[in-house]
């Protein structure tokens, strides 16, 4: 396209819009879907209160309804969790057969001294990282695809994705287990049919890595629709004129993505990543169901399942609470980042 022709339009559009400041700090306000209500911590009044002592009281009052809900539902359970974690508290103590005793950091020492805990922690981090990257890759690709295809394919894809999203983790995991069943699974049957005889009665859950791969795929299957829908909404919210202006400026697909789409999506992307981190770090159902409680010799344990097997299944509530506290502390990091991400998008808390 000859540049001279579009020059008048260009100046009219780009001067007010495509300035450097607009690109690096887009004033884009989007509704941010919140999957985990409980992950939103209560921010103390002082951080959000405007300067000037006189205006302090109303914000405090305004926080009261939230506090009424959050203190009994979040703060009190966390307090109880902390309290339990310093007690020797099992079934015998719960039913009054044995007096409760204070063990200080004994439960924590037990866990931190357990070699398996460190293996499982490392495994959990690795597994969560894999799931986050895969979820994002699949979700983002499909989100971009959604913007490119026509109405019917889009409707079909969205419906399919939302159906996967809506499937309860338990149901999804069970159905996928059937598909990968050693003796009767459709996958082995199909692979054998197309001539791969090595898959005759192949046990996908025998090897640690194939087991993690299958479970990871199911986790991604469950969580990519959220990423896809959120990013799709984000892409659609980028003003048409900006894209048009870029096109008129001669920007190609890659430049448009790098200079416009990516920076404008960054806040949403940050939130999606952090939510996925929190989500995938806490995976329980898929591992528990598909690997029957943590895999052969516990090879597929992740932190949540480990806590359950180690403590709750044998009614060692004190020990389980200590693992819970450790997980809480680990997850505080992405949560704080999440809050900061939220605020950057303009959603003041």
């Amino acid at each position: 396209m000859p540049r001279t022709v579009v020059c008048p339009t260009l100046t009219r559009l780009t001067v007010p819009r495509l300035t450097a400041t607009h690109l690096t700090a887009p004033r884009l306000t989007l509704p941010v879907p919140v999957r985990h209500r409980e992950q939103v911590p209560h921010v103390s009044a002082s951080t959000t209160a405007p300067p000037g002592g006189r205006r302090r009281r109303p914000p405090l009052l305004l926080l009261l309804p939230a506090a009424l809900v959050l203190i009994p539902l979040v703060a009190y359970p966390i307090y109880q969790l902390g309290l339990l974690s310093v007690l020797d508290f099992g079934q015998a103590q719960a039913s009054g057969g044995v007096p409760t005793s204070f063990v200080g950091f004994g439960n924590y020492a037990t866990i931190l001294a357990d070699e398996q805990f460190w293996t499982v922690l490392l495994q959990t981090v690795g597994f969560a990282a894999f799931c986050v990257v895969a979820t994002l890759a699949v979700g983002a690709t499909l989100a971009v695809l959604l913007t490119k295809v026509g109405r019917w394919p889009r409707l079909l894809l969205t419906t399919a994705a939302v159906a996967a999203w809506a499937a309860p983790a338990m149901t999804g995991s069970t159905v996928w287990s059937f598909l990968f069943d050693t003796n009767l699974g459709l996958v082995n049957h199909t692979l054998e049919r197309i001539g791969l005889s090595g898959f005759h009665e192949f046990n996908w859950f025998y090897d640690k890595w194939t087991a993690f791969l299958i479970v990871g795929a199911v986790v991604v299957w469950h969580s990519f629709p959220f990423v896809m829908v959120t990013l799709y909404a984000g892409i659609r919210a980028i003003p048409e004129e900006v894209m048009e202006a870029a096109a008129l400026d001669g920007a190609g697909t890659w430049t448009t993505f790098r200079r416009i789409t990516a920076p404008m999506l960054r806040p949403i992307l940050t939130i999606v990543v952090i939510q996925s981190v929190i989500w995938d770090f806490k995976v329980f159902t898929q591992i528990y169901v598909m690997t029957e409680g943590g895999g052969i010799a516990g090879q597929n344990l992740v932190l949540n399942v480990y806590a359950y097997q180690k403590a709750f299944a044998s009614s060692q509530y004190g020990l389980g609470a200590a693992i819970g506290v450790i997980m809480l502390l680990i997850l505080v990091v992405p949560t704080v980042l999440y809050i900061r991400g939220l605020r950057r998008t303009g959603n003041e808390l």
Partner: peptide, 8 residues
């Protein structure tokens, strides 16, 4: 504090 049942 954590609930403990009264003696059975």
């Amino acid at each position: 504090a954590p609930g403990t049942a009264s003696s059975a």
